[in-house]
Design a protein around this nucleic acid. Structure first.
Lengths: 333, 333
DNA sequence: TCGATTTATGACAGCGCTAGCATAATTTAT
DNA sequence: ATAAATTATGCTAGCGCTGTCATAAATCGA
C-alpha cells in the first residue's frame, strides 16, 4: 500500500521526455512547447506526482519558505499580522515557517538559526531588539529581512510599521484638544513590550509640551489582558480618584478598564475618559465604542511580504514603510 | 563578505575526522568517544556551522517538520491551539509549517499537498471534513495525522478534542436544571463551523428530552464576532422578546449579546440568561462573568503533538483523546 | 592469552532535484 | 536557399547530508 512516491524520473519516463523538461514544466520556467507541456502535465496528474521540496531546496540552494519570528501568539495582534503574511503569501508558492520567541532575544537567536538551516528566501521578525549574533547571522547572509511593527529605529533591510512614539504623542495631543487635563496611565510589562513604552514616552512628551503632567500611573507586572486592565484601573483610581482621563497601553487593557467602570458605576466618557491602542474589534463592539488608535496590523504583515518578494535579493538600501495609524474618536474619551 | 556557509566537510576537515562522524555528533546518534565529540564541537563552534536541513531531509527521506492546517487565524481559538502546538514542539527540534484553509476542504487539499512535499513527520489538521483526495494522500503515506477539536467521528490516526454534541447537550441540561424554559439560540455560519452545528444539535436533543423546544433562533450569515453577536441578539429579541435564556454559538457571540443587553437595559442573569462556549478570558473579565463551557484549546494542541511524537510511526490503532470540557457557572445564566 | 564482543570510525553511494552549458529543431531575415 | 536568430530539449555534475555496510580499536571473559 505504501508505494514510494513518484519522482521526476517516473514522470519523465511516462511522458517520454527528460527529467529537466519535467522540472521546467513544474516550475513554469524556460521555454516549453505546448504539446510537451500537456503531455507532462497529464503524466503528473496520472501519477499524482508531488515535487520533493527538500531536493529542490538542496539543488537550488534556497527554499520557497519565509521564516516568521513572532514574540507571542497570546496577544491577538500577532495572529493578525500572521494573517496578513499568510494572505500575501497565498498566491506565491512560499510558505511560512513560524517560530515564537516569547519576547526573548536569546530564544529568538536560537530559533533564527534553526530557521536559517532551511535556507529560506526571507525572514520576518518583530522590532529591532536582536542579539549581536542574530544581527550578524542576518546581515552576513543573502536572506532578506523585514522587521515589523515599529519604525522608530534603523532596520537591517526593511521596516514595516508605525512610529509608536508619534502615536503616543498624538494620543496626548488629541486628548488635550478635547480638554482633558488630569491624565492617568494604565500599562503592562514594558520589558516584554518595548513599543508600549515608546507610546508612553510619546504621551509624556505631548503632556510636557502642553505644560501638563501625568497625575498617576500604574503598571501591571505581566502581559496585557482584559482582566489586568480591569484590576489595574481599579488600583489606579483607588489611589487617585480625581482623574479625568486614563490612557491604556492597549485596547485589551482599555476594555478591561471599561468593564471596571461598569461595575463601579463610573460614567465613561463623562466622568472619566478612556483611551486605548490598536483598534481591536472588541473595543468597537462595546456599548460605547472605544476611543483608540487603529494600528494596521493586517497591512503590516501583508506589506512586509510584498516588499520582501518584490525583488529577488536584498535591497540596495534600507527601506522603511510607514503603515500609519488613525485616531478613532469613539465615545469613551 | 558573503562567504559560503560552512558545510559538514569543512567541520570534518578542521576537526580531523570524517564527515559522517561530524554528522553523528550533530545528531547525537551512534557511539562517539568523548574526545572526538569535543573536538568536533569545538570545530562547529569555531566555524559557526549550521546543518543544512534540506540536505538532511533529502538524505534521510523525512524532515523534522510538523505540518499544521488551521481553518482560520481570525478566531482566537486557533491561535490558542497553535500556542499549545508550539509549546509542545519547543523542546523537540521539530518545527511547525503552517497553512490556513479558510474552512475550505479544497483549499486544505492544495495546502496539504504542498506541505507533504516537505516530507514532514506528521500532519495536524482540524476536524474530519477532508476531500477524498486529502484522505487518500494522508492514509497512503507513512505520515502520522492528528485531527483536532472534535471527537464525534472516526479519525485517520489520532483525534484530540471534545464531543461538541455532548457539550451542547450538557448546556441544555444545565440550563434546564437552572429552571430556564424559554430558549433562544444565536449562532453564526454553520458551513464554516461544523462544530457549532454539533453543539446546536446537542442542545436541541436536551430540550427535546425535556419536552421543551427552541422558541426562536437566529443565525448570523458570516463568521462569529462580538459585533455579530450583538446585532444578532438584537434581531432575535425584536422578533421574540419573551425568552428567558439565549444560548450562543460561542463566547465571542455571547459577549456581543452581553453588550446588546447593556445598551438595551436588559438585566442579564435576571430578565435574560446568556450562555456561551469556549471560556475565553474576555468573557470572564466581563462585569458579570459569562456562563459558558471551557474547551481546553491549549491542551488540545499540546497533547496532539505529544501523541504524534510518542511513536516514530503511525499508530497501529486509531486513538481518540478526549480533552473534555467543564461548565463555568458564571453569572449570566 | 586468544577469540568474542563491544565501541568507535570511515568509505561509498545516492536521496531528488536544478544550474549551466550544450545541442537540436524551428522560424526568420536576406 | 543559406545564415542567423530563436525556441525547445537534453546531458552532466553536483547540492550537503545520511543509510548501509565494512573495518579498526578497545574491552571482556575464561
Amino acid at each position: 500500500m505504501l508505494q514510494d512516491a513518484p519522482t521526476l524520473t517516473d514522470v519523465a519516463r511516462l511522458a517520454g521526455v527528460s527529467e529537466i523538461t519535467v522540472s521546467r514544466v513544474v516550475r513554469n520556467k524556460g521555454p516549453i512547447s505546448r504539446s510537451t507541456r500537456e503531455r507532462v502535465q497529464a503524466a503528473i496528474e496520472k501519477l499524482g506526482y508531488v515535487p520533493n521540496r527538500a531536493a529542490g531546496a538542496l539543488a537550488s540552494a534556497g527554499a520557497p519558505l519565509i521564516g516568521v519570528l513572532l514574540p507571542s501568539l497570546s496577544n491577538i495582534v500577532f495572529p493578525e499580522v500572521l494573517r496578513g503574511i499568510h494572505t500575501a503569501l497565498a498566491s506565491t508558492g512560499y510558505q511560512p515557517l513560524i517560530g515564537v520567541t516569547d519576547y526573548d532575544p536569546v530564544k529568538e537567536q536560537e530559533i533564527l538559526s534553526s530557521l536559517l538551516a532551511w535556507q529560506p528566501a526571507a525572514i520576518i521578525t518583530t522590532g529591532f531588539e536582536h542579539t549581536d549574533a542574530s544581527r550578524r547571522m542576518l546581515s552576513s547572509s543573502k536572506i532578506r529581512v523585514a522587521e515589523l511593527m515599529d519604525t522608530d529605529a534603523e532596520p537591517i533591510d526593511i521596516a514595516v510599521g508605525l512610529s509608536h512614539r508619534r502615536a503616543g504623542f498624538d494620543t496626548g495631543r488629541h486628548l488635550i484638544s478635547r480638554n482633558y487635563r488630569r491624565f492617568g496611565y494604565v500599562g503592562h510589562d514594558w520589558n516584554a513590550d518595548h513599543r508600549a513604552r515608546l507610546r508612553y514616552e510619546g504621551l509624556r512628551a505631548a503632556l510636557d509640551e502642553a505644560g501638563l503632567e501625568l497625575k498617576a500611573e500604574e503598571r501591571f507586572d505581566g502581559p496585557s489582558s482584559t482582566m489586568a486592565g480591569r484590576e489595574t484601573l481599579a488600583a489606579l483610581l483607588s489611589r487617585k480618584p480625581d482623574l479625568d482621563v486614563v490612557v491604556f497601553s492597549n485596547d485589551d487593557m482599555a476594555v478591561g478598564g471599561f468593564f471596571h467602570c461598569l461595575s463601579a458605576n463610573i460614567r465613561v466618557g463623562q466622568t472619566l475618559g478612556l483611551f486605548g491602542f490598536n483598534g481591536l474589534d472588541i473595543g468597537q463592539a462595546l456599548p460605547l465604542p472605544l476611543s483608540t488608535i487603529r494600528s494596521n496590523r493586517f497591512a503590516i504583515g501583508r506589506i512586509a511580504v510584498e516588499k520582501l518578494l518584490e525583488t529577488g535579493q536584498r535591497p540596495a538600501e534600507k527601506l522603511i514603510v510607514d503603515t500609519g495609524y488613525e485616531i478613532i474618536a469613539g465615545a469613551t474619551a
